[in-house]
Design a protein around this nucleic acid. Structure first.
Lengths: 205, 205
DNA sequence: GGGATTACTGAATGTCAGTCCAATAAGACT
DNA sequence: AGTCTTATTGGACTGACATTCAGTAATCCC
């Protein structure tokens, strides 16, 4: 073994999480072994356990980091008109996807994993996005359960569309953006009158 | 121990798969141990391995069974007009969800599992649904990649909407059905002209 | 330089999945 | 009843991995 290199807590954690995102991007949770992770990072297995109590906790930490990065990046300027905010939000989400392919894929795997801790992170994240949209579209009012389901389901639509786009060759960024924008607007407009958010009415054709 | 009961291959397999769906419905793959599964089924561990070569194979068999049940149930009458087919398809999907909550949840978990075999089953299933829709909406023509992404993303929308509905109290079946129908129609109509399926044009408002 | 701190190591341990197989008994058939 | 088929048992064994912990050595600070 080469001379042991010693890094600060933060630097080492970042290095490990980066590597984790990379490995988990195209292999499943159980396919990636702690030993391999350690080996590729050039550290011992023990060090991993020094920083993260369990393998799941390590995975969760990686998901949490990606998740909050994304959340940070996709904040929009709430003084803009709704349609502009929507455009902006999706553009920055696409930016994030392009810039962090590894993280996106890794989180995508973990997203539906039935582990409660990881589930909770992804869930919380989606909740935040959902509330951003709902308050943008109807500030003050409280949305019906149907409206919430509509928005949440659209978030799944968005996530899948962007994920598919990463693997596609013949689809432009603008096409995906417009697809998602139109779908959300149309979905909200088609809601029954008592569920339709007031802020969206102005966008009717 | 109680008197040993002897079943036919098929009956035993069904019993085990039923139990599997139940256990995997609200716990993750690795949380459910083979030993526990065997114990709850009232059989020995050895018997499980007599019928299924590995734990993953067992899980995969369960997913495959649920998956094909669902696929069978959601076939539509292709002589009907498109909108009617869409209604009918969604209605029967809702039927399936109501009647097989355990299976739905278990498959929902498995869907994101990165195991190639299981991934392939769920993937294949979604592919079938996608093609059903695409040929209904544009028989003969070959859809663009964008159209495919639109339909596939809508399937995620559908899946999530129905899944959310199972846990919701104040949302009616009809509301969910209409939400999904309107969203698909609007999404396809909003596609750029060269991607827009011909069969959907007649539905334009 | 020397001592304190703490990043880091790797052999040992524990938990499961999966194997093997000789022994057992339930049900079918005559 | 007796015989045959085969579903079923159970437990000892292996191997793969996650996880532990007592100890080692960089770096910091005086």
């Amino acid at each position: 073994m080469a001379t042991r290199t010693r890094l600060s807590r933060e630097a080492r954690q970042d290095q490990l999480l980066d590597l984790g995102a990379e490995l988990f991007a195209d292999r499943s949770y159980e396919d990636v072994h702690i030993e391999e992770l350690a080996e590729e990072a050039g550290v011992s297995r023990g060090l991993l356990y020094h920083y993260f109590p369990t393998k799941r906790a390590f995975f969760a930490a990686m998901v949490r980091r990606e998740s909050s990065r994304m959340s940070e990046l996709t904040k929009t300027d709430s003084s803009l008109p709704i349609l502009a905010q929507l455009h902006q939000g999706i553009e920055s989400y696409l930016d994030y996807c392009e810039g962090h392919k590894m993280g996106v894929k890794a989180v995508f795997h973990g997203g539906a994993s039935a582990d409660p801790e990881i589930q909770a992170i992804v869930e919380h994240d989606m909740q935040v996005q959902q509330e951003r949209i709902l308050t943008a579209v109807e500030p003050g009012g409280k949305p019906t359960e149907l409206t919430q389901i509509a928005v949440r389901s659209w978030l799944h639509f968005l996530r899948n569309a962007c994920h598919s786009w990463l693997d596609s060759k013949n689809v432009s960024r603008d096409e995906i953006r417009d697809l998602c924008v139109h779908t959300l607007v149309a979905t909200l407009l088609a809601l029954p009158e008592d569920s339709r958010p007031s802020g969206i009415a102005e966008l009717a054709p």
